[in-house]
Write a protein that binds this DNA or RNA. Structure first.
Lengths: 152, 152
DNA sequence: TTCCGATACCTTGCGCACGATGTAATCGTG
DNA sequence: CACGATTACATCGTGCGCAAGGTATCGGAA
């Protein structure tokens, strides 16, 4: 009997282990920039489109306020972003890059290629992996929220 | 010009997001057993082969003592495992399942199939994913430790 | 206009993860 | 045997990541 504890579990553990291994690869590179991987992700979001409310950053990264609020406070304390309430809606906090935040993009220019080297995947495999992971994420998310039944 | 911050980064973020989505899927299932996902992983290791030193558990899960020591203390506090020094080598702590730890395997019998459903991957895709993730983990680990040069 | 609910965010508490440091036991070498 | 190095763990500090609870603001209906 093929142990049922050793089939899909392997996929989940492989995912868990790979995610941490990749984060480990980022660590020394980002460490020189004074960044963690989640902080780097926030900067990626802002480099693509500056001055965004916390809500949008959270949606882009699938992170909630409990994670983002203190993280953004640290980015602010490190002088990379500013946070300001919207005058027309005082509930909303808009996060914007400082000059140092923008220039960090240049300092991080070598990171993607270094990581690409670390992953060691050819183009086709990587595209395939991304597609599979996105389907998996969508499927797992649909299962968790909404459950097998579902309902907004 | 295809933004270099949007290529390999996508693979890494997809990995990061997928890993958390899968953990989210486990959470309600394991929550009923009073377990977290890392705790469940430790039990998987012990269900396969009981009475193992902390070192072996760490190697199996790629986790260090800083993570495992408090985690195992919690499992012990919850009555699922015991920890005992080896008489022939007082440095080594052997982790063993209690009766409750063993019986939890039965209570968790439905978890793998539920997760398999949540992932929504066919057999071929899943095998392919596991293989890709393992190569990726090995490559990233080799890059991080040992660096591009390498040296034991 | 006055509520009432929704929205956007913050805070707290807990459990990972990891680097750094500490400690006791064991091993290896002279 | 002595003693320095290694091994196996434990602990501490920091930073996620998430659930739960709190606050202030906004929008809409009575």
């Amino acid at each position: 009997m093929p142990d049922e504890f050793l089939l899909d579990e392997q996929a989940c553990f492989a995912l868990y282990a790979a995610s941490r291994a990749v984060t480990d690869a980022y660590r020394p590179l980002l460490g020189e920039l004074g960044l963690t991987y989640p902080q780097y992700l926030v900067l990626l979001v802002l480099w693509e489109s500056d001055a965004r409310p916390v809500k949008e950053i959270g949606e882009a990264l699938h992170l909630d306020y409990g994670t983002l609020s203190p993280l953004l406070k640290r980015l602010e304390a490190n002088g990379l972003v500013t946070r300001a309430r919207l005058p027309e809606d005082e509930r909303t906090v808009v996060v914007s890059l400082t000059e140092e935040g923008r220039s960090t993009r240049t300092r991080a220019a070598g990171v993607p290629s270094a990581i690409g080297c670390a992953l060691g995947l050819d183009d086709a495999t990587r595209r395939d992996l991304i597609a599979t992971l996105r389907r998996l994420t969508a499927s797992a998310t649909a299962y968790t929220h909404g459950g097998p039944d579902a309902q907004p």
